[in-house]
C-alpha cells in the first residue's frame, strides 16, 4: 500500500524488504544460536522480555544488561523481543510469546482491571515524562487558556494523566487522537499537544521549533508525577519463576546503573541495536532520549528504592483512572505489586 499510516512502521517494513539477504543471514545465525544454546546454555533458565515499543534508548538498560552479560552472570538467559505495530506486548504476554513485558503503570492497571491477570514485579521509571506543549505564538501560556482548544493526545493510550489534569481544572477541550507524528501540531492543526519529554518533545525541537518558542506544562510538576515504565508478567509466570524474575530485576537495575555511568557506550549499543533491527537511528535524538529516560529512573525527591513501586503512586494512579473512567473500581496494591521474593 502506498499510503502512509505510520511513518516509522512504513520505513521499518520497507527496510525489512530491502535487507532480505540480511534476514537470511540472521535466520541462519539464529538457528546456529539455538543449537549452541541447546548444548552449551541448556542449563540456564530462559526468559523472554518484550519492551513496549520498537528499539530505542528508552530501553538502553535492558540492552546493556544483556550485552554486558549481567543476566548470564545472574544465571538466566534473557532474550529481548520487540513488539511490532501489529503485535502489542500485552498480546505477546497473553500468548506466551513473552514472559516479561514493560508497560506504563496506568496502562497495566487498566489492563488488569479489564481482566488481564498481571503483576508488577519491578518499577523502573519513577516519574511522569508527559508534557503538554503549546506554541508561544498561540498565546496559550497558562493551563486555563486551553479551555475550548484542541489538544493532541496519543491514540494508543497514555492519555489518563493529561485527561485527569484537564478534568481537574474543569476545562473543556477537544481531544484529537494522534498516531505518532508531531506534524499536526507543527502545522497548527491543534493548539496543544501531549508529548513525552524523551520523545515527541525532541521531535518538535528537531522539526525546527526552538525551546524558547514553546510553553511547556510538565504533568509531574502539576501533581501528576505518576511512574511510567514497569516490569510485568502473568500471575502464573510469577508463581512459577519467582527466582528467575528476581534475578531479572536485579540484573536489569544493574544494567540501568551501568548505563547511568557509561552513557556514551550505552548510546552506541542502542544505536547498534536499532540498526540491527533496521529502525532509523538518529543519534542526536537517541542521546536526548537516553538522558531523559535516566532522569525518569532517578528517584529524585521520592523516597523509593530503585525498582520499587510506591503505594502512594499506585493509589494516585488508581484515583486518576477511576476519574477518567468515571468508575469506582477497587485497585489493591498488594494484589498488583509483587516483589519477586518477598
Amino acid at each position: 500500500m502506498g499510503i502512509i499510516h505510520n511513518f516509522k512502521t512504513q520505513f521499518y517494513i520497507c527496510l525489512k524488504m530491502r535487507n532480505l539477504n540480511h534476514y537470511i543471514l540472521k535466520f541462519t545465525a539464529t538457528v546456529l544460536f539455538c543449537f549452541i544454546s541447546l548444548f552449551a546454555g541448556a542449563q540456564l533458565p530462559k526468559l523472554i522480555f518484550s519492551p513496549q515499543w520498537l528499539p530505542q534508548a528508552q530501553f538502553a538498560g535492558y540492552y546493556i544488561a544483556k550485552e554486558r552479560g549481567f543476566y548470564k552472570e545472574a544465571g538466566i538467559d534473557v532474550e529481548i523481543v520487540h513488539p511490532t505495530t501489529s503485535l502489542q506486548v500485552t498480546a505477546m504476554l497473553k500468548s506466551g510469546k513473552a514472559d516479561v513485558i514493560s508497560l506504563f503503570l496506568t496502562t497495566a492497571m487498566t489492563c488488569k482491571n479489564q481482566g488481564l491477570d498481571i503483576v508488577n514485579i519491578g518499577q523502573i521509571s519513577q516519574h511522569s515524562a508527559i508534557l503538554i506543549v503549546t506554541k508561544k505564538s498561540s498565546g496559550i501560556s497558562e493551563l486555563k487558556q486551553l479551555n475550548g482548544k484542541k489538544i493532541g493526545v496519543w491514540k494508543s493510550g497514555f492519555d489518563e494523566l493529561p485527561k485527569a489534569l484537564i478534568a481537574e481544572k474543569n476545562l473543556k477541550v477537544e481531544w484529537v487522537p494522534i498516531l505518532s507524528t508531531v506534524n499536526l501540531f507543527m502545522l497548527d492543526g491543534i493548539d496543544a499537544m501531549t508529548v513525552m519529554s524523551y520523545n515527541e518533545y525532541d521531535q518538535i525541537i528537531n522539526s525546527g521549533l526552538d525551546e524558547n518558542e514553546l510553553n511547556v506544562f510538565p504533568l509531574a510538576d502539576l501533581g501528576y508525577d505518576i511512574p511510567e515504565d514497569g516490569l510485568y508478567c502473568l500471575r502464573s509466570t510469577y508463581e512459577k519463576k519467582k527466582s528467575e524474575l528476581n534475578k531479572f530485576l536485579i540484573s536489569t537495575l544493574k544494567g540501568w546503573q551501568y548505563t547511568t555511568e557509561n552513557k556514551d557506550s550505552a548510546l552506541n549499543i542502542v544505536l547498534q541495536t536499532m540498526q540491527l533491527a533496521h529502525v532509523p537511528a538518529n543519534k542526536a535524538h537517541q542521546d536526548w532520549m537516553l538522558g531523559k529516560t535516566l532522569e525518569l529512573i532517578n528517584p529524585g525527591h521520592k523516597t523509593v528504592k530503585p525498582g520499587e513501586l510506591l503505594e502512594t503512586d499506585f493509589m494516585n494512579a488508581a484515583t486518576i483512572i477511576n476519574k477518567r473512567d468515571k468508575s469506582s473500581s477497587t485497585y489493591l496494591f498488594t494484589d498488583f505489586y509483587k516483589k519477586p521474593i518477598e
Binding site: 502506498g2 502512509i4 512504513q10 517494513i13 524488504m17 507524528t181 506534524n183 491543534i190
Partner: peptide, 25 residues
C-alpha cells in the same frame, strides 16, 4: 488518524505529506 487524512481535515487545507518510503518494498 493518519497525517494525510487528519491534517487536511484539521487545517481545512491541502497538505503535502512528509516524504516516506513506499510500503511496496
Amino acid at each position: 488518524f493518519m497525517d494525510w487524512y487528519q491534517i487536511p481535515k484539521m487545517t481545512n487545507s491541502s497538505y503535502w505529506s512528509e516524504p516516506y518510503f513506499d510500503e511496496g518494498g
